[in-house]
Amino acid sequence: MKLINKKPSSLVDKPMRYCPGCGHGIVHRLIAEIMDELDIREHTVGVAPVGCAVFADEYFNCDMIQGPHGRGPAIATGIKRSKPECIVFSYQGDGDLASIGMAETVHSAARSENITIIFINNAIYGMTGGQMAPTTLLGQTSSTCPAGRSVAVNGYPIKVCEMLAQLEGARYLERTSVSTAPGVIKTKKAIKKAFQNQIDCVGFSMVEVLSTCPTNWGMTPVQGARFVDEKMTPIYPLGVFRSPEQ
């Protein structure tokens, strides 16, 4: 018998410190597998965000930098412009990318920086304990909208892919989900394309991954996965929003 899923060498071999059922572990593994497959580990620099994935710098077995909340795309820009021979990715959550760091997100896309952004949308702030995110669904409860997100008080959730699709510089935008195993496989394909685009100097590529936060959603991981499919996906439809082939 043969082991068919060897741990990727681009991932540091240590237990994930994320909560049970958290999607970060899945996406970390996918990125590492892709680094292995594209043989780019030794010239990849990753940018870790503020939020739960601040610990990403412990897991990716490549050069890493951890920066201020929301500024990943600016940091990635600085690295890529200084070392164009490096593959640079920024790993960000929804509060990081779509709230505090929205300006950096939009402008790096507008400049079509040749970087790869992995955007984990789990519709909540995880690290700080479950506050409302820019992507929290209407009616969804959080510790800062305990009665549920309302239009009157909190406004509407932000659809990042749809919004960025208006920008010519955003070359590749795809939304996927890691709520199911087939979704994980599709997510890997999308992230791989986002890295390949950078190798091919295509420009700004972002994959928005619908993920779970069972702990702060107050659900079991299995319920959380169902929440993604039943509640999030209708608001955040999966698919390709921009592609370089268009």
Binding site: I4, N5, K7, G21, I26, I185
Partner: peptide
């Protein structure tokens, strides 16, 4: 069957699939 779907969804790289 060693399809590996369980390992795909596992957030903790806790499952080895042998075939």
């Amino acid at each position: 069957t060693g399809c590996g779907l369980c390992a795909q969804i596992c957030p903790d790289l806790a499952i080895e699939v042998w075939k």
